[in-house]
């Protein structure tokens, strides 16, 4: 499935670069626009900033498309551009947690829903407080389901470094969740 997706991406890229086929480029943008937006949102934590980051990332990717060497999947290359754009965009500005975001829950009981909502908000605050590289390793592994090797490719570091960042982040989140469940203030 992944191989099919990868070769389809390569075909679309070649079609656009060789013949200027805009439909091919449009297909690529439509395929990945939601994924890119979600990464941007997870990194920036704000809808408006995520919109700006998504647009900047796509424009950068399209202008650099001729330099794409096909050593990795287009998806991985695009994620790397998105992460770098998001980090540059959010550098110096504090990560904001939107309290008005809608949270899906299967819980039918109101009390359970409130507890879950509180836990998730707490978790989100904790995620926001993580150092950028730890936060990105969690976003790529948990939300995007990337393997250690793919995450290392996106982050531009070794697999060992990814494991280190990821496990540090998970341990911090575990501690925060445990403290919340025990009713401690953090």
């Amino acid at each position: 499935m992944d191989e099919d997706s990868r070769s389809e991406d390569y075909r679309l890229i070649d079609s656009y670069l060789d013949t200027g086929d805009e439909a091919a480029l449009e297909a690529l943008v439509v395929k990945y626009r939601k994924e890119v937006y979600l990464i941007a949102y997870r990194v920036a934590g704000d809808v408006e900033e995520a919109k700006d980051i998504t647009q900047k990332a796509f424009i950068s990717a399209v202008s650099e498309l001729r330099n794409f060497k096909k050593n990795s999947a287009f998806k991985t290359w695009l994620y790397r551009i998105t992460v770098n754009t998001a980090l540059n965009h959010t550098r110096g500005s504090a990560y904001t947690v939107e309290l008005c975001e809608t949270i899906k829950s299967d819980a039918k009981d109101a009390d359970t829903w409130l507890i879950e909502k509180q836990q998730e908000r707490h978790l989100k605050t904790m995620l926001a407080s993580l150092p950028p590289r730890q936060r990105i390793s969690v976003i790529l592994r948990v939300y995007k389901g990337l393997s250690i090797a793919e995450t290392a490719d996106v982050m531009g570091c070794s697999e060992g470094a990814v494991k280190s960042h990821y496990h540090s982040a998970i341990n911090k989140l575990k501690a925060a969740m445990a403290a919340l469940l025990q009713g401690k203030d953090l």
Partner: peptide, 26 residues
Amino acid sequence: ALLKIVAPDPGAVYFNNLTKTVLSTA
């Protein structure tokens, strides 16, 4: 627990405009 945190949907209008902007820039 992390996966339960859902990102807000920016809307179809935003995505359509995004595609148009990217294509016109290209």
